[in-house]
Design a protein around this nucleic acid. Structure first.
Length: 210
DNA sequence: GCCGGGATACTCT
DNA sequence: GAGTATCCCGGCA
């Protein structure tokens, strides 16, 4: 029997329909799942960032900006916002708050749980055993890296996390030790770069930047 | 172990 | 045509 699995459940739209800062914090410790080619790829969320929308100079939706790329952020909570940065890396976000209030939470790092063998293949094209120590540590410790490991790409932009093969599950283990600090890679954002809107699980080795 | 620079292609001006 | 919510590798310590 598998009592633990039975207790896990998919997060609801109500969960996502709150401010990004709250959702970002509560997503820590939850399980990001992708049912990929009949297998479960899953990983514990250990680092997130909140993008608070219209008033947040770091957000793509700052000032109500509404282009093709950000369109999903303007929609309802609980949908995936996936975009490409620097030509080769994808970033996975969950949209938060209701339609018309374009906030999102960026998943920056996760800790592999199920399907680790496949993640090694996705990232490095070789079996887990063959990975060097740095490669093992670098499996999912960054926004672009976790997308590659979990086989997340542009085709998931706009999918409903409440009703698709990619979703986030609740986890009975509460996270207590949370570090709140500044976000990464947003030097252009003036005063917003100093906001403590990045959250991570203290002492977790998969966190991208301490 | 830390630091610097180049890759890379998509998005918006 | 410029900028980018990153990653990786090589050089030096």
């Amino acid at each position: 029997m598998e009592p633990k699995r039975a207790l896990l459940k998919k997060l609801t739209r109500e969960f996502y329909n709150r401010d990004a800062t709250i959702v970002a914090k509560e997503l820590l410790g939850k399980l990001l799942v992708h049912e990929f080619e009949g297998k479960r790829l899953s990983a514990i969320i250990v680092e997130t960032e909140a993008y608070m929308g219209v008033s947040d100079k770091a957000a793509h939706s700052y000032g109500g900006r509404r282009t093709q790329r950000v369109e999903v952020m303007h929609g309802d909570a609980g949908y995936a916002y996936v975009f490409m940065v620097y030509g080769k890396n994808y970033c996975f976000n969950t949209v938060t708050r209701e339609k018309g209030n374009p906030q999102a939470v960026l998943i920056r790092a996760v800790e592999p749980v199920e399907g680790v063998e496949l993640m090694a293949q996705n990232r490095f094209g070789k079996p887990l055993k063959a990975l060097t120590k740095p490669q093992e540590k670098g499996l999912t410790n960054g926004p672009g890296k976790l997308c590659e490991a979990l086989a997340i790409n542009r085709s998931m932009n706009g999918v409903d996390l409440c009703d698709s093969e990619i979703y986030i599950e609740d986890n009975e283990k509460p996270v207590t030790d949370i570090v709140e600090t500044t976000r990464v890679g947003i030097d252009y954002a003036e005063e917003a770069k100093y906001y403590n809107w990045r959250f991570y699980i203290k002492d977790n080795k998969y966190v991208s930047v301490k």
